[in-house]
Design a binder for these strands. Structure first.
Length: 490
DNA sequence: TTTTGAGTTGTTCGA
DNA sequence: GTCGAACAACTCAAA
């Protein structure tokens, strides 16, 4: 019985189910030391943002409780990874460290350093695939290059062998007689004392159990109408699993196999299941791109976009962040984001399009704001989404695809229920005008108790004019690019 | 190597 | 009110 203790180093895998690093550590036969290290300064430019930290706080609490239920407990430390790992090893006599891989550029560098350092000291160090269905380097075109277009990527994933079945939750986790020292969760100071935090906590149940409940609820009630309802912010048509996936409370393999099973049991559900699995593969695609093109976290994938005529507009950015642009759907989304740490995907697109195309503010500004306010802030997804919207990313929309916030609202929130929920000052307006209050007759506004410019802003830009100018800017960029690359030879 | 078909999510205008 | 065309080429991935 019993080898030396092993450390399980947790990151974005805050779960016991389908956790290969944990299973490997238990397999060693000795005690297992579950460790979480917090050191923001080590995370580079993209350490967890505000909303993510709030989630992280709750999630660590929940993980600790699940560990305790199995005879173990989470060890919390602060400081740089290598010195902290070294001291835990020294204190406990551990001879192995296992963890589940991350794929952010900064994390990859870190992992490499840690592995080299530990191994050179005779410590086993191994990382596992747990947060993706496919490793980013395993999916490749016939020429061996990374994919830049989604549909062929999706086909390649479907043609690949199915991802492995999820590992089950270990029933007991052997622990040391004398537990190593640990900080308290409060010592990490992840959760600021702000009213904002309360809103986020009220909107979500955090933790592995909550994640599974959310998945089961989705399978029971949501997925059947997913194809139809997923675009509707006024209904709970999307899965809302993104924060659980990001923090690793839910394994994508668990989702993949449960959804596949659901598809086999529901004859009419093939389309809905495929639509949902496709979204999971979008997440894989985002990681694929981030892994192969790490510079895209800040630079456009299509290099010519470096010359795009963006505007400096502090007032516009602020109005957008606060949900005061005068376009109800955009404002509803931005307020939902602030209030709950989440925004419906359809609305994310409209809000992002508004920032980059109507206000012509750099997508990086939007990405940064989302990074700080989203509980599901994920470097891969965020980067892909913003570059896609701005038109400078992989598989980007044609430049002329500019969302009209009013008609998007009328299409996807036809009775204005979503807008009324988040922009209550417009609540009294009839459906006819809810997405375009500035066009409402004075008598209608009056009756609804709305004075534009006082209760709710006039649109900060005129849609038609902004659209024309954006198209002009894109044309200009293209012309400049054609000129500079030169087609003179032909 | 060259060729060919296709590419998440849209809007507007005019018949 | 509905419908099709125009909005522009360009790059990717496979044959």
């Amino acid at each position: 019985m019993g080898g030396k203790p092993s450390i399980v180093w947790f990151h974005q895998d805050l779960r016991l189910k389908d956790n290969p690093a944990l299973v490997e550590a238990i397999k060693q036969g000795g005690a297992v030391i579950p460790l979480y290290i917090w050191e923001l300064s080590e995370e580079g430019e993209w350490g967890p943002g505000g909303a993510s930290r709030v989630w992280l706080h709750q999630s660590l609490k929940s993980l600790d409780m699940s560990l305790r239920a199995r005879g173990s407990a989470l060890v919390l430390r602060r400081g740089e990874s290598i010195p902290v790992l070294r001291s835990v090893i020294r204190e406990t006599g551990a001879d192995a460290v296992y963890w589940n891989r991350r794929y952010e550029p900064h994390a990859i560098g870190m992992d490499q350093q840690v592995k080299t350092e530990l191994r050179s000291n005779g410590i086993h160090a191994e990382s596992f695939c747990a947060s993706l269905l496919f490793e980013p380097w395993d999916v490749r075109t016939r020429q061996g290059t990374p994919f830049k277009v989604f549909t062929p990527f999706w086909k390649a994933c479907l043609a690949a062998p199915d991802p492995p079945f999820p590992l089950s939750v270990p029933s007991t986790i052997p622990s040391l007689k004398h537990r190593p020292q640990t900080l308290s969760l409060e010592d990490l100071r992840l959760k600021p004392q702000m009213e904002w935090v309360q809103g986020i906590l009220k909107a979500w149940d955090v933790g592995e159990e909550a994640a599974h409940n959310a998945l089961l609820r989705f399978l029971k009630r949501g997925i059947g109408v997913y194809s139809k309802d997923r675009e509707r912010p006024d209904r709970t048509g999307s899965s809302r699993l993104s924060p659980y996936l990001h923090h690793g409370e839910l394994s994508p393999r668990t989702v993949w196999h449960l959804v596949s099973k659901w598809r086999e049991m529901h004859k009419g559900g093939v389309e809905a299941a495929q639509d949902y699995l496709r979204e999971l593969i979008w997440r894989e695609f985002a990681y694929h791109l981030l892994f192969h093109f790490p510079e895209t976290v800040s630079a456009p994938l299509r290099a010519e976009f470096a010359a795009f005529p963006w505007k400096q507009d502090r007032f516009g950015l602020l109005a957008w962040q606060r949900g005061k642009t005068g376009y109800p759907l955009v404002d509803a989304g931005m307020r939902e984001l602030w209030a709950t740490g989440w925004m419906h995907n359809r609305v994310r697109m409209v809000a992002a399009s508004f920032l980059t195309k109507h206000l012509r503010i750099r997508w990086q500004e939007g990405a940064r704001w989302f990074w700080d306010t989203l509980v599901d802030a994920d470097l891969a997804n965020n980067t892909l989404g913003w570059q896609w919207t701005a038109g400078c990313g992989a598989d980007a929309a044609p430049f002329f695809r500019i969302f009209n916030p009013s008609s998007q609202g009328e299409r996807f929130d036809p009775e204005g229920r979503y807008v009324r929920r988040w922009v209550p000052e417009l609540g009294g307006l009839p459906d006819r005008w809810i997405h375009r209050p500035w066009e409402a007759p004075a008598s209608v506004l009056n009756e609804a108790g709305v004075t534009l410019g006082k209760d709710y802003p006039f649109p900060i830009v005129d849609h038609a004019m902004a659209r024309t100018e954006a198209l002009e800017a894109y044309r200009e960029l293209r012309a400049r690019n054609t000129f500079s690359t030169g087609t003179i030879q032909s």
